[in-house]
Design a protein around this nucleic acid. Sequence first.
DNA 1: CTCTGTGCAAAGCGTTTGCAAACGA
DNA 2: TCGTTTGCAAACGCTTTGCACAGAG
Lengths: 133, 133
Amino acid sequence: MNNYTEILRQHNLKATPQRLEITNALYTSGHISIENLYDVMLKKFNSISLATIYKNINLMLEASFIQEVKIPNEKSVYELTKETHSHIICDSCGEIRDIELNLDSVISNAAQSSNYNIKKSALILSGTCKNCQ
Amino acid sequence: MNNYTEILRQHNLKATPQRLEITNALYTSGHISIENLYDVMLKKFNSISLATIYKNINLMLEASFIQEVKIPNEKSVYELTKETHSHIICDSCGEIRDIELNLDSVISNAAQSSNYNIKKSALILSGTCKNCQ
DNA sequence: CTCTGTGCAAAGCGTTTGCAAACGA
DNA sequence: TCGTTTGCAAACGCTTTGCACAGAG
């Protein structure tokens, strides 16, 4: 019994080999697109179907086990759900990194000026990473 | 000669009636999806094609005349390009509002901890607007 | 054993392309 | 007039669905 079996079950998802491998790919990559996930999965399951990928991604999204990250001008990637965090993308090499930023004061300013009761935030920064500079 | 004729030409876009109306719809709505834009356009041009909408949206994006706003769990909307700003969305009525927030300190923190040279930011907040509370 | 998941093929849907006619400058 | 844009129809690519078989619990 693999590491991820229990965590899948906690989200009411049966621990099939395909799902364990999707989970592993998400964990290992941090963020992965459908296309890249399919490539990774093909290495372990030579006859896996894209339909299986999509069905599982959708079930995992519904279960809030994973989340979609929509990046400006890029295709979406998926990540395992964790504490709220921001993302930073390198416009040269495409690296996507999680970054913990304190948005409290920004959010309280926003709440004040908009009169919204703010519940969520999604911040995506982009620029050039150390290596690409 | 309409208000928007000159601004379209400045972006190397001929001022066709369809483009003037797309511009007007963007201006009036603030943010609009392809689907809603098509509905609006149909009222003025009863035989307009979706292909025309897409071609123009893509040309306008290339010309940086408009920008796409990717919203978590929602379909994308488009807006006329203006100074950098954030967005706040009501999770009840769907209202999308521009909001000017100072992200300088957040960005400098991010730059410091990531070693990225940060060029752009996209912040989307969501919650409940005054009316829906 | 039962119910769910998988893989395949087909269908669906939003978006793009090719082309002839219409139009802007 | 000349090059661009429009509208239509067909093509495309990504995603979803239906179904029979395989597999998890």
